[in-house]
């Protein structure tokens, strides 16, 4: 662990769920680092423990051994330094779009004016100003996830942790959201940790891809993606990269 460059340090993380026959090993000695401002995807087949890892990094679930550090501080629970975006959005249905985005800000010592301004900035960032007063039930999946992202970013976390955030939207919306997320990432200079099972998605987005393998979940290889952005799925280099990662996963 050197300096504050390592935004996220996953250090020998293991997780065993209690059960008969000594329980189920979900993760075994998982280690990797994420640098400040980096975009890292975690990819793997189902059963590789990537969602467990997501929950552990987010402080939503305890680990059995090892440690996760955010900017050098061990994770002991959910922290406002880390904004979480879920696949199923989990927007608060009783709050408007504006109310959802304001939720985290209400926990801070901000006067109403500053809060409103921050909410407006966030809605502008995700292009949802026109829907500020709508309730989540009336929004499409893509719009809901934009709200989810705005809500997580509103409190200005260092890290954005996302679990298959675009897994529930159609392909066209997904590629639009990819472009939007990358532009948000560039604009805000956040560190992004993005869990997915979609190799195309990982190669489209990531600086590096942590490829995981199942039973028990562990890191198989960490792949650098040296492709210029914006990346075109039709490029040969893109296809090669995807093939390579797919090859790892199907081994």
């Amino acid at each position: 662990m050197s300096g504050s460059d390592r935004r996220v340090a996953v250090d020998g993380v293991s997780k065993t769920y209690d059960g008969e026959d000594g329980g189920v090993r979900a993760l075994a000695d998982v280690s990797f680092d994420v640098e400040d401002g980096e975009f890292v995807c975690i990819v793997g087949p189902s059963g590789c423990g990537k969602t467990t890892l997501f929950r552990i990094i987010g402080g939503l679930e305890p680990l059995t051994s090892g440690e996760v550090r955010l900017s050098g501080e061990p994770v002991t629970g959910p922290s406002p330094d880390l904004g979480i975006v879920f696949q199923e959005y989990h927007l608060f249905p009783w709050r408007t779009v504006r109310g959802n985005v304001a939720f985290g800000l209400e926990q801070q010592d901000l006067d109403a004016g500053a809060r409103e301004q921050r909410v407006a900035e966030m809605l502008d960032l995700v292009g949802l100003e026109a829907f500020a007063d709508s309730y989540p039930k009336g929004l499409s999946g893509g719009m809901k996830q934009r709200v989810g992202i705005a809500r997580a970013l509103a409190v200005d976390p260092e890290i954005l942790l996302m679990d298959e955030p675009f897994g529930s939207v159609d392909a066209q919306t997904r590629s639009m959201l990819h472009a939007e997320l990358l532009s948000i990432w560039r604009e805000t200079e956040k560190t992004v940790l993005f869990v997915t099972h979609d190799v195309d998605e990982a190669v489209t987005l990531a600086d590096r891809i942590v490829v995981m393998e199942p039973s028990p979940g562990r890191v198989q290889e960490i792949v650098d993606v040296d492709l210029d952005r914006p990346r075109e799925r039709t490029d040969e280099a893109f296809a090669e990269q995807v093939e390579y990662v797919r090859g790892l996963i199907s081994e």
């Binding site: 402080g59 922290s79 879920f86 989990h90 608060f92 985290g104 926990q107 997580a152």
Partner: peptide
């Protein structure tokens, strides 16, 4: 839903009363 509590905790709500 447990997830609502997860979201709230990750956004800084850190007491049961909250």
């Amino acid at each position: 839903p447990e997830e609502f509590l997860d979201v709230a905790k990750s956004l800084g709500v850190d007491t049961d009363l909250g």
